[in-house]
């Protein structure tokens, strides 16, 4: 049976089958990114509301491009210039947006659980484009798609995630997705950013471990996900940047500890010379730009599933209804 999705709030509750389905659905949209003409009419007449209550450039543009390439229109709420600054509650803001009758709401918010809270209060599908330090599900999916393209599989890989895991929504989405496919996940970073509880956030039987030395974390890795060390948002506790570079920067010598064909991902934007050295960022093992391209494909697939599939079903229902009423007339 084809899975149906009402919202996309997190990857944690999705099964391996559902996740595979979403990755498979992204494939045709990957092909479109290589076409000279990238615009489809699939969601013509549909509107996607983009509500970014927290600054974001790349994710917002990626969703906007995804909507546009599906033929949908988008409306943009910029938190900086909006009523949010005037003290309006989140619920009032999204109800106002909803009254403009979009077919879907894509939202980013600084509060963990904000998308979940909004979804409980709206009837239209809600896509979480990052909520606080909880999840960033489309990032988790685009990372998995990138890994699958390069490695041929996302099953049973050794995946190492470097950085501030505790405060990373990207890491949580990566962990929840990859753990379901049998990946052995190693988390590495300063102890304050990698609490022991992280080893238990997956379902029983998943392999999540912590390593305090980067050399141990990289040994045998197939995939290395380097997280951004935030400079705009303070990590708690903050760490002197020189210490971070000394202990945790991924540079060429360290990368050699991983498998020869290991790949390197980074959700961007990168701090070159902090969490990743320029030679690694630009090297043949880096997938950073593929991730960006795949982001649009994944987001097109999600929008299609949440709006297009519902519309298709509605259409089928309308067809069935009219068939039914013509039956009645025939009688």
């Amino acid at each position: 049976m084809t899975p149906r999705f009402r919202d996309l709030l997190a990857l944690e509750p999705l099964s391996a089958e559902e996740l595979s389905f979403l990755l498979d659905q992204s494939k045709p949209f990957q092909v479109i990114q290589r076409h000279p003409l990238k615009k489809l009419a699939t969601l013509r007449g549909k509107t996607v509301a983009l509500a970014f209550f927290e600054n974001s450039t790349r994710t917002r543009i990626s969703f906007s491009a995804a909507a546009s390439r599906l033929g949908a229109d988008s409306m943009n709420l910029q938190a900086e210039s909006s009523s949010v600054k005037k003290g309006e509650s989140l619920l009032d803001t999204v109800h106002t947006l909803d009254a403009m009758k979009p077919d879907c709401l894509v939202m980013r918010h600084a509060a963990s659980g904000a998308a979940d809270f909004v979804a409980r209060n709206l009837d239209i599908p809600v896509i979480n484009a990052g909520d606080g330090t909880h999840e960033h599900p489309t990032q988790g999916l685009l990372d998995a798609l990138t890994i699958r393209d390069r490695k041929g599989t996302i099953e049973n890989l050794n995946v190492t995630i470097l950085g501030d895991i505790q405060h990373s929504r990207v890491a949580r989405s990566n962990i929840h997705l990859l753990a379901k496919f049998g990946c052995r996940i190693t988390l590495c970073g300063p102890a304050m950013w990698v609490p022991k509880e992280l080893e238990h956030i997956g379902p029983p039987g998943t392999s999540i471990r912590r390593a305090s030395r980067i050399e141990d974390a990289l040994d045998g890795a197939d995939v290395i996900i380097v997280l951004r060390v935030q400079t705009e948002r303070l990590h708690e506790p903050a760490l002197p940047v020189d210490d971070y570079i000394l202990l945790y920067q991924l540079h060429a010598a360290r990368l050699r500890l991983a498998k020869k064909d290991a790949i390197v991902l980074h959700p961007g934007p990168m701090n070159r010379g902090v969490e990743i050295s320029p030679e690694v960022a630009d090297g043949p093992q880096s997938c950073v730009l593929e991730q960006v391209t795949n982001g649009i494909a994944v987001r097109m697939a999600i929008l299609y599933q949440l709006i297009g599939a519902a519309a298709a079903e509605e259409g089928a229902q309308t067809a069935a209804d009219s068939a039914h009423s013509s039956d009645e007339k025939a009688r």
Binding site: E12, G113, T133, H134, E135, Q166, R172, E197, H200, I201
Partner: peptide, 16 residues
């Protein structure tokens, strides 16, 4: 300071 729930596996999962 800043906490909204008890620290543990659940707070870590929820990102709170």
């Amino acid at each position: 300071a800043g906490a909204v729930m008890r620290e543990g596996v659940t707070s870590t999962r929820l990102g709170l």
